[in-house]
């Protein structure tokens, strides 16, 4: 299991994966927005999406878990 966390506080503007998706390193799992900047969140490893913990429109804090990989 690996958690993909928000590197900083912001708003989730897009969740790019669904539970059960196979993803590879550097695949985009979500896009955050803060201060009018879009920040793609990339996976650091290959895996399968076990859980999506946020949805579009939600505000997140730094270090909050966005997606769990198995």
């Amino acid at each position: 299991m690996a958690d993909i966390k928000a590197p900083m506080g912001g708003k989730v503007i897009k969740v790019s994966v669904n539970v059960g998706d196979s993803i590879a390193e550097d695949d985009e799992v979500a896009v955050l927005e803060a201060m009018k900047m879009e920040m793609p969140i990339l996976s650091e490893e290959d895996g399968t999406v076990a859980e999506v913990k946020v949805s579009a429109g939600q505000t997140v804090e730094a270090e909050q878990v966005l997606v769990v990989l198995s």
């Binding site: 590197p7 550097d26 009018k36 900047m37 879009e38 920040m39 793609p40 990339l42 650091e44």
Partner: peptide, 10 residues
């Protein structure tokens, strides 16, 4: 101003 970036491993 439109700032965009690419990051790896934070």
């Amino acid at each position: 101003i439109l700032t965009e970036f690419t990051s790896r491993a934070e």
